[in-house]
């Protein structure tokens, strides 16, 4: 069954019509990727799902519940958790405090401690840096922290906005390894990427977004073979 369904979403920035009728769905346990060039509306889509932006038309449903009347912080409590573009860790909070903020909506200390264990198993580096200010971490470490912080909320759907952005190739590989591990653990993921090649390798399905519209959707393997996708996003001539 679909966990998350967007139907005909229109989002505006003032007069700018950024999303022009986006519809997509994410099934339990899937990795779905949303690819597209600069300014296509990928971040706008995620921010609309997260409730930071209000769509002017269309509906967003989580397990068939309409999300349009919930505020951003309430949507997190419902299990839709975003790792924003550019990591956005709290630089003047320590690594441990950042992780604690990730678990902000969860009441039970024992469950939070359990999630912390899992995050440290996934990212042992974060355990070594527990007391360090997040602003002093390297870019790769900050990305790990941003992901770990989101996992602390125990997401039902994890929204990742360009997790590989600005990272060295080795780190990109390790981030995608982590995404595979999360998938293996059963996490449902909506992955936004400009690195379409990598994204289509980990994903089950994909959507191609262009100037605010979904122009194509298919199984990830099929998109990899699609000629126009290859030309526009995979750098194949």
């Amino acid at each position: 069954m679909s966990i998350l369904v967007l139907e005909n979403i229109h989002t505006y920035y003032g007069e700018i019509h950024a999303l022009r009728g986006v519809s997509l769905s994410v099934e339990e346990g899937e990795i779905v990727t949303l690819i597209g060039g600069n300014g296509a509306g990928k971040s706008t889509t995620l921010n609309t799902i997260s409730g930071l932006l209000q769509p002017r038309r269309g509906s967003i449903r989580l397990y068939n519940e309409d999300l349009s009347n919930f505020k951003a912080h309430e949507i997190v409590a419902k299990g839709v958790v975003q790792v924003p573009e550019g990591r956005r860790v709290f630089g003047r909070l320590t690594v441990a405090e950042n992780l604690e903020m990730g678990a902000f909506t969860r009441p039970l200390r024992s469950e939070i401690a359990q999630s912390l264990e899992q995050v440290f198993t996934l990212f042992p580096r974060l355990k070594e840096r527990e007391g360090q200010l997040a602003g002093t971490l390297s870019g790769g470490e900050q990305q790990m922290l941003a992901m770990g912080r989101a996992l602390m909320a125990k997401p039902k759907v994890l929204l990742l906005d360009e997790p590989s952005m600005g990272l060295a190739p080795v780190l990109v590989d390790s981030i995608f390894d982590t995404i595979r591990k999360l998938h293996a653990l059963g996490t449902t993921i909506l992955l936004v990427e400009q690195n379409a090649r990598m994204a289509l390798q980990v994903a089950d399905r994909g959507y191609v977004l262009q100037t605010g519209e979904i122009i194509l959707t298919d199984k990830a393997a099929a998109l990899r073979e699609n000629e126009s996708v290859q030309k526009a996003y995979l750098g194949v001539l």
Partner: peptide, 13 residues
Amino acid sequence: EDKETAQLMGIDV
């Protein structure tokens, strides 16, 4: 530090 990200953590700003 960052209101928007705080909201994404589920914090009621």
